[in-house]
Write a protein that binds this DNA or RNA. Sequence first.
DNA 1: TTTCTGACAACAA
DNA 2: ATTGTTGCCAGAA
Length: 105
Amino acid sequence: MKKDDFFQRVYHVVKRIPYGRVTTYGLIAKYLGSSSSARTVGWALNASHNDSSIPAHRVVNRKGLLTGKHHFKGFELMRQLLESEGIIIEDDKVLDFEQKIWTPK
DNA sequence: TTTCTGACAACAA
DNA sequence: ATTGTTGCCAGAA
């Protein structure tokens, strides 16, 4: 690999998020080795729109807030996708967030 | 090349 | 508790 793209690593992790679970930018960043590169993770997800099969709706910020929903086609889309997986969204945040959180290993 | 911005996070005041 | 600043990485102007 020439670059070992940071983005590719992000996608790799995001694709591994199991059904009915969510994760955070910080967690992914930490898994990648840069505990403070959460911003770049979000940036990667932004570019992931071009890539298919990236469940970006399962990635939220550390508070469980759906900060990225504004980047979806519709503001309701992200929420609906999550609720379809058993994740309840209340006021743009994940209920029982600590239970739904998934950490890459 | 420099500067700014961005789906974040941690810390200082 | 709220606001401002800094760190991190990549891309656009």
